[in-house]
């Protein structure tokens, strides 16, 4: 395991200072934005820097679905499993993604390009089935379009 550079984490802390307990979640969000996931060394370092117990940071990181403790894909594909999308075939979309990328929910492609997740309703039901890649929405997704969508992300 190569050592993780703590510099960017310290920079995030400095940006947000003063960080107390109440800001633990935004802190983790910013750290994840910075590293793409929450590296263990970083969390332990943040704990000693801020005085927020490592157990709290770990508890938060495992409670909230958006945090990853393992290295994650550069892009996160989220398939909506809300009612509308469910009814309009998100399963098939998920299968298409599996065909295209070879990953199921919770998995990451070997080249770390994509991670796949499902998410409870993204609030775009009128365009179901919906897929999000990072912050972009794709509506009325056709299984045939999956490849095309993915090709837009490096």
């Amino acid at each position: 395991m190569t050592a993780v550079d703590l510099g960017p984490a310290r920079a995030v802390l400095e940006d947000m200072a003063p960080v107390d307990h109440g800001l633990a979640i935004p802190l983790l969000q910013n750290i994840q934005d910075t590293y793409g996931y929450l590296p263990r060394e970083v969390l332990l370092d943040l704990s000693s820097e801020t005085g927020i117990p490592a157990s709290h940071l770990f508890g938060l990181a495992t409670f909230y679905a958006q945090f990853y403790l393992e290295e994650h894909g550069r892009h996160t594909v989220r398939v909506c499993r809300g009612t509308a999308c469910h009814v309009r075939g998100r399963k098939i979309i998920q299968e298409a993604i599996d065909d295209e990328l070879g990953i199921g929910p919770g998995e990451t492609t070997e080249d770390r390009r994509f991670s796949l997740e499902t998410v409870a309703c993204v609030g775009t039901c009128f365009l179901a089935p919906v897929v999000m890649v990072d912050h972009d929405y794709f509506g009325n997704v056709d299984p045939k379009k999956v490849g095309e969508i993915m090709s837009g992300y490096e």
Partner: peptide
């Protein structure tokens, strides 16, 4: 604060 809950 050595202990915590993980997951949910």
């Amino acid at each position: 604060s050595a202990l915590t809950f993980k997951m949910r």
